[in-house]
Design a protein around this nucleic acid. Structure first.
Lengths: 400, 400
DNA sequence: GCTGATATGTTTTCGACAGCAACAATTCAC
DNA sequence: GTGAATTGTTGCTGTCGAAAACATATCAGC
């Protein structure tokens, strides 16, 4: 678990009495969402609340249509068997990810279950209004396919760029050519459901930390490599690093080489210019391919020039990660996209590089892992965003 | 205020009923400690709690000896005058800062008031047992001078090095030559009062964020320059960045120049090798001096070589801070120690450097400031550590 | 100076909720 | 089949904050 922290400078505002109820409802729903089905007795132990309290809370969640109970089939222990509490499939979130050449839209349930996923290809990078249109049409189609008791509670948008989460405005998405475009608000207006937007790397980390390689870890540095660059995000004491305006985590634009080339951002020697798919494809002499194929190409290569480039990129990546280790002291580093492939091609080289580039022995205390969720990643992350308000206050959002 | 955040992955454990009371007591005490005396009506507005609730909570704090009320002397507004609530001087903390050539010990009250401060010079860097001895003797002396109703509630230790805050063990303090030395526990045993230890830069940031240049700001990058190097700490969403084991914030050991010299930490081109007092003193041709004198020397110099070195260091510092801006998106950067002098010598040069080295327009949204607390800095910071448990649960610590 | 408006302290009542205790139900081990 | 262990169920209790009604103190306008 995490270290006892230095006291926070500002305390939260006073707690009213019934906020305790909301908090406890939220805690139980979140526990089920992130940890899967459990017995009521298990919830009692996990929360420290009284049996009777748990019973009342679970009953309220059941009334809200969020959970149902089943009899334990194979008890195996002494004592009265405790009923299992499961999440229903009635509350759903729509996940949206506009990208260079397509808008991907998914229907996701609690517990990270991706029910469906559709990829709308676009001839060029989709514009904002085009994206909104696609979402509206797709949500209409999804609604038509729902059971009577099912309900879409929110839309989450994972955007490759700087997003002001507070009002869902995309400040800058260079690859989509979006600039100060309101997104969440018009989507909400069009589909009649609350919508929230956030940076794709932040949501990717969130998904991995809940359902992937980062389960149960509170301090994570996450880097995701795509054809359009390197996005990053950091989990600090269990919370996503946001910064003053929600723009924190531009780890791809930190210095790794004073003698490097100029980045499109105007600086020199940025991580994402030194470590890139493009450079790897160049030495491979290949065209862009999908992730699994790229994995295979890197892993099976015997070409010395390719191996040299892989090692060079791993060394640079190690330098950058060493800096991040000195800054964040994470327990875990998670690498997604082509950075995962790069790592898999020669894990010890990267680990050694990180150790060399870290301050003192910090580099030895960190584990490096590859991201696990792959295609589900952004669907689960965006859904988490959409589910956020309901998880934080189930009765408030679903009740009256 | 801060941006609405992406939902946290792990929820806290269930809330019991009387935790609300503790939380509210803590909130009010913390509000007074960090914000100064206020009227009861002001507390009502600040917390959103009911008048009657505030009355009861303030009465309890008064009974614990933490606060007292006075009649408003000059009301100036309509309505029944609300009594002022002040902190008493009865609860005190001992602040300790072992450094290269001295152990500084202070007696600090709530609200950041430094009652006394003693500097015990040592012939060489003090050892752990020497430090503990000095603290024991000094606490005995301080106790003898207290009024009957006064009480020392804790000892806070600000250590220049890596500290595991959870158990107060100093993992590594290179300049003191300490290595895996238990500190907080033996101090507590010797003086019979709870003791806590933390990194000096973390506590410096804490102090500045509460009582200095960072008041009311939730996202701060703090760098402090001393003769022994550059220490850093970061305030993330109002909380000190700790990392998995409490070692986060080694900002002095991040890469700023691939062609730089080798640092004692083994890496090349670290910020603290490129930006240092030593290099400034070299071009100044001067011996080490105190802060105010150094300020004057840098500000008044007309020597081109000195100005060139100042500008070089400011440019390097700008590069580093640009990276930190991309990573943390802070609203404020605070510079202490000789970095404050350096900044004051040519503020626009550093601001321009940061803007150039930041991603997009992020560099324009950040303010750069000099630290304010000077000699009080670590006394207030260490006291905050000592007061932490009492601020978090006044009745629990002082009551039974 | 009076009067009304305004703001706030004080006291009492009330409602919500978590804890607790006693009892019932269900399983396992022998 | 009996006892131990575990957990659900039910009704009661204590605590705490909110709300309402009343009391108090100041200011503004006349």
């Amino acid at each position: 678990m995490s270290v006892e922290s230095v006291p926070a400078p500002l305390s939260r505002v006073g707690n009213s009495n019934d906020q305790a109820r909301r908090h406890n409802l939220s805690t139980i729903l979140t526990l089920l969402h992130h940890g899967g089905s459990q017995t009521r007795a298990g919830l009692t132990r996990a929360t420290g609340l009284n049996r009777s309290t748990i019973a009342a809370l679970v009953a309220e969640l059941a009334e809200l249509g969020l959970v149902y109970e089943t009899q334990q089939t194979d008890p195996g222990t002494v004592g009265r068997p405790s009923p299992f509490v499961h999440l229903t499939d009635r509350m759903l979130a729509v996940a949206v990810n506009p990208d260079l050449d397509a808008v991907t839209i998914g229907l996701v349930g609690l517990g990270g279950r991706v029910h469906s996923r559709v990829r709308h290809e676009t001839p060029a990078a989709p514009g904002v209004s085009e994206t909104i249109d696609i979402v509206r049409r797709e949500v209409d189609a999804l609604r038509a396919g729902l059971d009577d008791d099912q309900r879409i509670v929110g839309v989450g948008l994972a955007v490759p760029g700087l997003v002001r989460t507070s009002d869902g405005v995309v400040t800058l998405a260079p690859h989509l050519l979006w600039n100060d475009e309101p997104l969440a608000e018009p989507v909400a207006a069009q589909v009649g459901i609350p919508a929230l937007a956030a940076n794709d790397a932040q949501l990717g980390l969130l998904a991995e930390s809940l359902f992937g390689a980062g389960r149960g870890v509170d301090d994570i540095v996450y880097l995701n490599g795509s054809t359009s660059g390197i996005g990053g995000s950091v989990l600090v004491a269990g919370r996503t690093l946001q910064g003053a305006r929600g723009y924190a985590g531009e780890l791809g634009h930190t210095l790794v080489n004073s003698n490097g080339v100029t980045c499109f951002c105007g600086k020199t020697g940025c991580l994402e210019t030194e470590v890139s798919v493009g450079r790897l494809l160049d030495v491979l002499g290949a065209d862009p391919v999908d992730g699994d194929e790229f994995d295979r190409m890197l892993g099976e290569t015997v070409d010395d020039a390719v191996r040299a480039e892989i090692d060079r990129q791993l060394d640079v990546l190690g330098t950058a990660l060493g800096n991040f280790v000195a800054i964040f002291n994470p327990s875990s580093i998670i690498l997604g996209g082509f950075l995962g492939s790069l790592f898999a091609a020669n894990p010890t080289r990267l680990q050694d590089g990180i150790r060399r580039a870290s301050f003192g022995t910090l580099g030895e205390q960190v584990t490096v892992e590859r991201a696990q969720l792959r295609t589900r990643l952004l669907m689960v992350g965006a859904a988490e965003l959409a589910f956020g308000p309901m998880l934080a206050d189930p009765a408030g959002v679903l009740g009256p």
